[in-house]
């Protein structure tokens, strides 16, 4: 059964130095509050997995939390580059970052394999591309029935999955909707899962076939309103596109990024305080 906990308690209990972590959410429902809390608690040598690293991993990478990144598209959506990710790959700053690069289709399949307790994913992919040249885990398997050669890649099996969802009931059953990405697979592929939600409700009132993660597959559930901002939560708030654009400037320069991280994450007690800074025009004028 999931335990209701504060986000800081959940991260302290379930995220350890050296863990492999998947924090998923495809543009939508990205668990930013949890990312900040991991930075605040100073986790190191994390092996991060995420299809689209997005700003959440740019922040974790820039903060020095990660030693490895497995990913399939590393840009700032609609804006351009992830500068902290690039600085780590190109210049080893602040620490060297190993990368394991795959395609969206592969990682999506690899999460499915992980959720299904299979050792590898099989897909029709990568043929003719240069991926296998730089990633020796991209291999092939021959179909025993047709002889077709297919790509085979390792399943994703994180120590911890972290996702954000719209609602959970008092028992900790979780409901999400809209663009649901690979969150269900990430939770089921992981040893333990932390879920942050917009609100705690008496009952979910969900129709059959809704995307529900039963309480007993989740370790901790935490109520964190607006916990996915600057991404969005369908039915609650919109994507903060202006923050995604501002991030380009904040993250481009090491000093400016470090000042931002210090003021907005290290020196804030929790996400609520972070959000109050987002609404403070004096702070925004200095850091954006």
């Amino acid at each position: 059964m999931a335990e209701w906990a504060s986000l800081s308690e959940a991260v302290a209990a379930h995220v350890h130095d050296g863990d492999t972590i998947a924090m998923e959410g495809f543009t939508h429902l990205i668990p930013f509050a949890a990312g900040h809390e991991i930075i605040r608690q100073g986790r190191r040598r994390l092996s991060l997995i995420r299809m689209t690293p997005d700003l959440i991993y740019d922040q974790l990478i820039g903060a020095g939390c990660a030693s490895k990144l497995t990913f399939s598209w590393g840009g700032n959506p609609g804006v351009g580059s992830l500068h902290r990710f690039r600085d780590a790959v190109e210049n080893d700053w602040p620490v060297p970052l190993d990368i394991e690069e795959r395609s969206h289709s592969d990682l999506a399949n690899a999460y499915v394999a992980g959720a299904a307790n299979l050792p590898f994913a099989v897909l029709r992919g990568y043929k003719g591309s240069d991926f296998a040249r730089v990633n020796d885990k991209i291999r092939s398997v021959t179909c025993p029935f047709t002889g077709e050669v297919l790509a085979a890649t390792p399943a994703v099996r994180p120590d911890v999955a972290v996702i954000h969802a719209q609602k959970a009931d008092w028992k900790g059953n979780v409901l999400l909707w809209g663009i649901i990405g690979v969150q269900k697979e990430a939770v089921l592929a992981a040893k333990r899962a932390i879920v942050t939600v917009e609100e705690r409700v008496r009952t979910l009132d969900a129709p059959p076939n809704a995307c529900i993660l039963p309480s007993w597959v989740v370790a901790s559930v935490c109520e964190v309103p607006r916990g996915a901002t600057p991404s969005y939560a369908h039915g609650y708030y919109e994507r903060d596109n202006s923050f995604y654009r501002a991030w380009d400037g904040i993250s481009r320069d090491r000093e400016r990024f470090s000042a931002w991280l210090n003021r907005h994450v290290h020196k804030t007690q929790d996400f609520k305080e972070y959000l109050s800074l987002q609404n403070d025009p004096k702070v925004q004028a200095v850091y954006q």
Binding site: W73, S81, E101, R102, S103, G128
Partner: peptide, 13 residues
């Protein structure tokens, strides 16, 4: 360092 593959390898194939 460019963003990487996304869905394109399997779309193109």
């Amino acid at each position: 360092r460019l963003p990487g593959a996304g869905g394109a390898p399997e779309i193109s194939s």
